[in-house]
Write a protein that binds this DNA or RNA. Structure first.
Lengths: 242, 242
DNA sequence: TATATTATAATGTACAAACATATAAATGTT
DNA sequence: AACATTTATATGTTTGTACATTATAATATA
């Protein structure tokens, strides 16, 4: 047989099968839509169990490389590809693009004990103080966002930094912390009295709420950020393709 | 026990387990790094075999939602990898994954003249009628989103289509229209009387407003979609890296 | 006290065996 | 010829079982 599997190798059989399949589906005929040998048959040929073979196939199916169809069989999927969109600007940069000049008219830095959520996110104990930065930004007399940011001690912030500079630039230049990954959650909320006060709106008024989790290259948590945007002052844009 | 699995249901056990896990890991504690019950234990609790449970966990691991570690256990991944073309699920698909069954309790199809914005987007004249589809969706007696969708004439919809089927699938299968690009704008708004009525909330209550522009492979406009989500019923998640 | 060593608890790998389900193809019926 | 029915074949689901591997926790040793 053309391909086979080494049962003596320390490499797991399903991994060997996966590699073998990847090679196999590179072949012209398979690329052009020929169905693979059926699972039972192929498993027998490779002298592995069907379960093990399926383990390998599953992975490729999940990657979108293979497509399964009952009765018909499994074959190489036709059009694949995936891309991703990016949005990695700090708030001031984002606003600048829209021709809006931002004022920071409240900037407050304190050291606080993290609550459970924060301690968990940062993977630290609750008795270890962390830096909290709050700020209100907007046009003068018209605040439109309140932020609360928490930073991991690892970052080494003292609280004396110049927070008026673009944040991620500052972290990179002065602290060698490179934020590479972020996860955001966006939802709508009614303003609490605290937020209403900060944004000069009424309690219950709509706000856009954005949670942002920032990580460094090693997937270590860097910043935990909560943003409350006055309705209509902020539009979040996402582009995606498939 | 808090969650459980229905052995009588026609839904495969591993799918049920998957949904259940997705719900589970939405909980704060798990999101913040608590490890899941170990496989053997969890399988016993859910009264399914470990193999079946692993099938479910595997899927989430492939998606990058969970991370396994020997001896330590399995937990929700922090840094996340964003694998699947997941921002490309239709509403019903998105909800299904969360184990929520959606009712369409208002579905309305009409032909309308586009306003300036629409005509511009579709690059057509304002005297050419286009198909408008409105719907309210949610759990029964608890609507949580109102949609209005407009389709380009090019798509060739007659209005008699079965809009209960997943939209993009339908477009693809029955109309050979493949939506590949989307641009979305998300903001918070106060409910108008119209929206308040649709969502059974009060005028002025917060809603998440999502505009969605959908294009085909040739970047030609396909759909213009407006969605009004009841506050807290919907969280928009974005992952990005640089 | 610091460093090896060993035990333990979690995931990882692998098999065999049944039965379920969807669908293409073959067959039968009108 | 058009339609309905059956059958065969491929994937899909599920269980039970066994042993391997690895990283942490507990223990023993220098």
């Amino acid at each position: 047989m053309k391909y086979s599997i080494d049962h003596k190798s320390p490499i797991p059989l399903h991994v060997q099968a996966e590699v073998l399949l990847r090679t196999l589906i590179e072949e012209e005929e398979y690329k052009n839509g020929k169905v693979l040998p059926n699972e039972v048959e192929l498993a027998k040929q490779l002298a592995i169990s069907r379960t093990t073979l399926r383990q390998a196939i599953n992975k490729l199916v999940f990657e979108g490389l293979l497509v399964r169809k009952k009765r018909t069989g499994t074959k190489v999927s036709q059009g694949v590809v995936s891309s991703k969109s990016n949005n990695w600007l700090s708030f001031s940069q984002e606003m600048k693009l829209r021709g809006i000049t931002i004022k920071n008219f409240e900037l407050h830095v304190t050291w606080v004990f993290p609550d459970e959520t924060l301690a968990n996110f940062f993977e630290i104990k609750t008795d270890r103080k962390i830096l909290k930065m709050e700020r209100v930004r907007g046009k003068l007399n018209e605040p439109f966002v309140y932020f609360a940011s928490y930073f991991h001690p690892r970052v080494g912030l003292t609280g004396d930094e110049d927070f008026k500079k673009p944040l991620y630039e500052m972290l990179e230049n002065d602290h060698s912390v490179i934020a590479t990954l972020s996860k955001e959650e966006i939802s709508a909320k009614a303003a609490s009295s605290f937020i209403a006060d900060k944004l000069k709106i009424k309690v219950g008024d709509p706000v856009l709420f954005r949670k942002r989790f920032v990580f460094d290259h090693g997937e270590r948590p860097i910043e935990y950020n909560l943003g409350y945007y006055k309705a209509d002052s902020f539009v979040y844009t996402v582009e995606s393709s498939r």
